[in-house]
Nucleic acid binder design. Structure first.
Lengths: 339, 339
DNA sequence: GCGTCCTGAGACAGCGCTACCTTAGTGACC
DNA sequence: GGTCACTAAGGTAGCGCTGTCTCAGGACGC
C-alpha cells in the first residue's frame, strides 16, 4: 500500500467491528462509547470484537461527526518553570484514563500569544479548557465566551461570577511570607520579584499588606524586575539590593529560583544567611531544600491544582457541577534554616 | 437547515469562503493550502474572503478527508528534566509557523508506556513523529513500521539503516568528561549515574573507555542507581561514594542535577571542590554555572537538536530528504571551577 | 485544421463516525 | 385487549473537508 494517495487509513473501522460482532455500526458505536441503551451482552460482544481487531476509534471522524473532540486544551504561561510541569503531569494523570487528549499551549506570559493559541485551539473543538489565572485579552474573553467551551481556571481564585477556579490565595501566600519574617524578628523587609505576572503581583501585594499592618512598610525595599525569573537574576538582584540597602534583614523572593540564586550569591560573597539576612522563597521547588542553608519556602499545591482542576472540568463535562466555584487548596510554609 | 445546530460547529466553513469569493469549494481549499494550480488572482481573493470571515480550517474534517492530520507527535521520556523542555520549545518554534500541531507524549522512561502512546497517537494520523533515541519495545517497532509515518530520532546517533537521527555522541561526551579530568591530573576517577536510560549508559561507556585507554579503570568507583536523577540523590550518592572510597579525586556525574546535589553536599560537609575532588556534570543546566563553585559541565545542544530534528522532519514531509542520515551536533565542555 | 498536450477550474464522492429519527418489541395500565 | 409509554436496536444522513476524475480552453506542432 502506498501511503500517498490512499484515502483510507488502513486501520480497522467501526464498520468492521460491527460486522464481526453482528450488529449495526451505530450499535457498535454506542457500545464502545458506553452508552447505556445497549444490552450488556451485545456490548460485551462488541468490545471483544474491537479488542480482537485492535480497533481504535478515529478521533478525526469522531470529532467531525459530533462537532466536538475528545481533547482538553491546557494553556500555561511557561514550560520552563517546574511549577507548571507538575501541574501538567497531574492533569494528564486524570485525563488520559478517561480517553481525553491533553493539548498543551504555552503562551510565554504573553496574552496576545494566548489569544492566538485560543483561536487556533478552538478549531479543534476541545471538550474543555484549563486556563491559568484570569488575566487575558479582551479578544480572548470574547472567543472563549462565544465558544461556550467548559473551562476551569487554575492557580488563582476569584474571577467573574460563575467561573470555576482551583488554586490558592496568592495574596495570602505573600502575606504569610512577611508574617513569618516578622515573627523571626526581622524589621527591614524587602521583596524581590521578577517576571511580574499577575500572580507575582498578588503575592507582592500580600507581602506589602502585612508590612503595612505592622507599620513597617518600606517601598524603597521593593525590587521589581520584568525579566524572566532565573537563578542568575536572583543573585544579581540580591547583590544590587544589598548594596543599596545594607540594613536589609529579611527578603521574600517571589520565586524559588530567585531565592536559590540569592542563597548561592550570599555564599560566594560570604554573607551569612540567615544571621545577617533571612530569606524566604516561593513554590518550594525540589532544589530549595538542598540549598546551603536549606531554603525556607512556601510550598504550593501545584500537582493538586492540576488534579482538582482536571476533575472539576470532568464534572462540568458530565453535567454534574460539583463542589464550590472556588476551590482553595491552600499553601504550606516550609520553614528551613534560611530564615 | 436542520433544526438543531448541535451537529455543526457554528464556525465559518470552507463552503462559505468559497461562496464569498465566488469560486468552488475545492478551489478555495486549494487556494488556502497553497496548491500551485490556482491562479494568483483567485488565490488572493480566497485568502481575503477567508480572512474577512475569520475562517480557520476544521482540522478534524481535514484529517478525515485526507487520512492524515497536521499534527506531529513528539515522544519524550520525561518532562521534569529541563533538557527536554528546551528541545520541545525549539520543536514548537519550527512547527507552529508551518501550521503543525505538536502532540507531546511523555512516557516516563517506560517503553511499555511508550508503546501505548504510539498506539494511541497513531490513531491521530500524525504526519510525522519525533522520537527519543532508539531503544523501544518490539511492539512499538512493529507499530511504527506498519504506520509508515515519517520519523526522526533525537539525542542519539545511529539506529537501523535509513533512520534519520539528530543528536550527538553520548559515548564521546562521556569520554570527553573523563579526558578532561585526566588532563587535570586526576587519577582516581568515579562516575555516578542515575536513571540509567540508554543515553546515560552510553555516556558511562564512553567514560569507562577513556579510563581503559589511560590504564586507570576502576569498576569499584562506578555508582549506578536506577532511581530518577535528582539533586537529593546526587548528594546522597556522593556521600556514599566518598565514604566507600575516600581517595576519589574526580567524579563525572551523568546528569547535572546529580552534580549540583553533590556540590551542595560537599559544601555542607566542608569537602573542598575541586581541591580534594573535582566534579564534572552533564547537560549544563542553567543552575550549574551558579553553583559554588561553578560546575564544569558538558553543554548539550538540546534546543538545536529539537530545531534540527523538526526541520529534518519537515524535509521528509516535503519529500526532499536533505542532509545526512545522522546529524551530529556535537557538545561543548564548559570548564568552570569545579574541576 | 486537427489532434495533442498542458493548465486551471469544477463535479463528485467519499473519509469514519455519530445525531437524529424511526421501528420493532416489551411490559404496564386502564 | 388495546393503548400507551418505554426500551433497544437500526436506517439515514450528514459533519467539513480533500483525492480523484473530468472538462473547458488555450498553446503548440505537423
Amino acid at each position: 500500500m502506498s501511503r500517498t494517495g490512499s484515502r483510507t487509513t488502513g486501520r480497522p473501522t467501526l464498520a468492521e467491528v460491527a460486522r464481526l460482532s453482528g450488529v449495526s455500526p451505530i450499535t457498535a458505536s454506542r457500545a464502545l462509547r458506553g452508552v447505556s441503551t445497549v444490552a450488556p451482552a451485545l456490548a460485551e460482544k462488541v468490545m471483544a470484537a474491537a479488542a480482537s481487531l485492535g480497533y481504535i476509534a478515529n478521533p478525526a471522524a469522531r470529532a467531525l461527526a459530533s462537532a466536538r473532540s475528545h481533547s482538553v486544551v491546557v494553556l500555561i504561561p511557561s514550560l520552563s518553570n517546574q511549577l507548571f510541569i507538575d501541574t501538567l503531569e497531574a492533569i494528564h494523570e486524570v485525563m488520559r484514563p478517561r480517553g481525553l487528549e491533553v493539548l498543551i499551549g504555552n503562551y510565554h506570559y504573553d496574552i496576545a500569544e494566548e489569544e492566538n493559541l485560543i483561536r487556533n485551539y478552538l478549531a479543534y473543538q476541545p471538550c474543555g479548557m484549563l486556563l491559568t489565572g484570569f488575566e487575558r485579552s479582551e479578544g480572548s474573553r470574547l472567543l472563549l465566551n462565544a465558544s461556550q467551551v467548559p473551562r476551569v481556571h487554575m492557580m488563582e481564585l476569584g474571577g467573574e461570577a460563575g467561573a470555576l477556579s482551583v488554586g490558592f490565595s496568592q495574596f495570602e501566600a505573600g502575606r504569610a511570607a512577611a508574617r513569618h519574617l516578622l515573627q523571626r524578628g526581622r524589621r527591614r523587609l524587602a521583596f524581590i520579584a521578577a517576571q511580574l505576572d499577575p500572580r507575582v503581583m498578588q503575592r507582592a501585594e500580600g507581602f506589602r499588606q502585612a508590612l503595612v499592618e505592622a507599620g513597617l512598610q518600606a517601598t524603597e525595599l521593593e525590587v521589581l524586575d520584568p525579566q524572566p525569573s532565573s537563578i542568575g537574576l536572583g543573585g544579581e538582584l540580591f547583590s544590587r539590593l544589598l548594596a543599596k540597602a545594607p540594613d536589609v534583614d529579611g527578603i521574600f523572593f517571589c520565586n524559588d529560583d530567585l531565592a536559590q540564586g540569592a542563597v548561592l550569591q550570599a555564599l560566594r560573597e560570604g554573607i551569612e544567611v540567615p544571621r545577617r539576612v533571612a530569606m524566604v522563597g516561593f513554590n518550594d521547588l525540589p532544589a530549595s531544600a538542598h540549598m546551603v542553608p536549606p531554603l525556607t519556602s512556601i510550598r504550593t499545591p501545584r500537582a493538586a491544582v492540576g488534579r482538582s482542576a482536571a476533575q472539576a472540568l470532568l464534572g462540568l463535562l458530565d453535567g454534574k457541577r460539583v463542589g464550590a466555584e472556588q476551590q482553595d487548596l491552600g499553601f504550606e510554609l516550609m520553614v528551613r534554616e534560611s530564615s
